[in-house]
């Protein structure tokens, strides 16, 4: 059975970087797909990859990860200024992080507007779409 875990930002708000990474990685190791409100910092993304590599063995093959960052869009002028203020107030609350075990998610297809999760054949080749 496929488990989708939705984590609101408040759940990770007071956690340290290590705590956030452990929480996400532990869920992936329990074969859950996590939808996290908000996003990790760039350094935390790299740390998550590093921590994942340490955990890989015959059973756990790693993760698939996608982060939608509203900051990726090319904004300019007043729009950019508004976004800077918005980010200062909301911090990492904006955006969306999707993480799941590589044994379940075959591939994450991402473009600036949507994320597509392609599931492994054994999981009936399901396709979950998330549009921003």
């Amino acid at each position: 059975m496929l488990t989708l875990e939705v984590i609101p930002y408040q759940e990770i708000e007071h956690l340290s970087s290590v705590g956030r990474i452990r929480k996400l990685l532990n869920s992936a190791k329990e074969d859950k797909i996590v939808l996290l409100q908000g996003r990790l910092k760039k350094e935390e993304e790299a740390e998550l990859i590093r921590a994942t590599m340490e955990e890989i063995n015959d059973e756990f093959k790693g993760i698939e990860l996608a982060v939608i960052d509203p900051g990726n869009e090319n904004v300019a002028g007043l729009q950019k200024f508004t976004k800077v203020i918005y980010d200062k107030i909301l911090g990492d609350r904006t955006g969306l992080t999707v993480i799941g075990p590589a044994s379940i998610i075959k591939q994450v297809k991402k473009d600036p507007k949507k994320i597509q999760l392609l599931m492994q054949e054994g999981n009936n080749k399901k396709r979950v779409k998330k549009k921003r």
């Binding site: 760039k42 350094e43 993304e45 990859i49 996608a66 994450v108 991402k110």
Partner: peptide, 17 residues
């Protein structure tokens, strides 16, 4: 290959940071 992979974004984001 598709350039919009999280690995590419994470590498470049970390270098920028």
């Amino acid at each position: 290959a598709d350039p919009y992979t999280q690995v590419n974004i994470t590498i470049i984001g970390n270098l920028a940071a």
